[in-house]
Simulated assay, not measured.
Amino acid sequence: MAYFKYKEILFTPLAHSVETLSYVENEFQLLDDDTVIVSYPKSGTHWMVEILSLIRSHGDPSWVQNIPLWDRSPWIEVDSHLQIALKYPPPRLLSTHLPFQLFPKSFLHSKAKIVCTLRNPRDVMVSTYYFSKGCKDSKDLGTVEEFMESFLSGEVPYGSWFDHVKGWVEIKERANIFFITYEELQLDLRGSVQKICHFLGKELNSQQIESVVENASFHKMKDNKMSNFSLIPESIFDHTKAKFMRKGVSGDWKNLLTVAQSERFDDAYQENMCSVDRTFPWD
């Protein structure tokens, strides 16, 4: 299936349209009590939705067990999800994979809180490679080598990982944006949940935090049909070819990339990220 471009960035026609992307960028109004989960695809978005859903319900898992993830936190740039977002009673929990330059312009005059999750781009690429095999609107990815070149050049849906991260990191001084990495969540989920609560101004007791940590674990999410992507219809995703929740680990790229491919990736990474004033767990 052919992708289309909106302002030089590739999108898939099954989920997106120029009209929706333009509306979200120029007309969508962010409210001061909105919380928006921002991430490049395959960087832990669903995990963060689960965590924030559980924080919102003070650790009570009934919301995450009974309401599909995209109804709890719709993706504003997805055609069908935008309608959910527009009818969502405040305070809204929203999600997006958009780069900053396509994000709602209304953000600049709002107190909406942004939780931005970043992940090692090597793992992002490998996760995307496996996940895309099940997406009905994905083009043939070719070999790992070919897909890596597409990824490094930004010729993939949602564009360049490098541009995405740089765009968001550039506004890191704003008080209403919070950065966390997939790797930090894995290393210390409890500590990460406490930091997120502090940023959101949500005071949870230790028992409630324990419940958030327990119910946002990979195994709990994998068994929860409201969170594990299994409700996505076959017309959109071929569940026999890929699993949305595959491994939930860091460093899986080492099982796929050759030494030469890894060196090629490192070179591109250094070239693209040398100007970024921030260190990451994978640096």
Rank of each mutant, 00 (worst) to 15 (best):
S110I: 06
K241C: 07
D123W: 07
S160M: 08
G134R: 06
S230V: 06
I177D: 14
I177W: 09
I180M: 15
S160H: 10
G154H: 05
V193R: 04
S110P: 08
L231A: 05
C197L: 10
L94H: 12
V165F: 02
S160K: 02
H109D: 14
K220N: 11
D188M: 10
N224Y: 01
I196N: 01
D223I: 00
T117P: 09
D238E: 08
W161D: 00
F107R: 07
G134T: 05
A175M: 02
L93Q: 09
C116M: 08
S230N: 03
P99Q: 15
H239N: 10
V212C: 06
I180R: 11
T143E: 03
P99D: 11
T117G: 13
L102S: 09
I177S: 06
S110Y: 07
T181W: 07
K172D: 15
V156W: 01
M226Q: 10
V193N: 08
L94D: 03
H198L: 06
A175Q: 14
G167V: 10
S153N: 13
V213M: 06
G134M: 06
E214V: 00
E210C: 03
F179C: 13
N215G: 03
F229E: 00
V193W: 06
M221V: 04
P99H: 14
L94C: 10
H164S: 02
E210W: 00
C197F: 02
F147W: 05
W168S: 12
C197M: 11
H239P: 04
E184W: 09
P121T: 00
L141V: 02
K220C: 13
Q208E: 13
S192E: 11
C116H: 10
F229R: 04
F178G: 13
E183M: 11
D223W: 02
P99A: 11
E146H: 06
K202D: 02
V165I: 05
I114A: 03
I196Y: 01
E203D: 13
Y182F: 15
A216Q: 04
Y130H: 15
V156N: 00
S211M: 10
M148H: 05
S230T: 05
Q101G: 07
K220V: 08
F229M: 03
T117L: 13
N215S: 04
G142R: 09
I196Q: 02
T117E: 03
P233E: 04
W168F: 13
L200I: 05
V193I: 12
L98G: 05
I236K: 07
P99I: 03
S235L: 00
D223T: 08
S153F: 04
W168R: 07
Y130W: 12
V124W: 04
V165T: 03
L187H: 14
S227T: 01
T143P: 04
S106W: 14
E145H: 13
S127R: 07
F229S: 03
N176M: 10
Y130P: 01
D123G: 02
T128S: 15
F100Y: 15
M226V: 00
M221P: 06
A112H: 09
K225M: 08
V126Q: 12
Q101M: 12
E210P: 01
L187R: 15
F199V: 02
K139V: 11
K105E: 14
A216G: 12
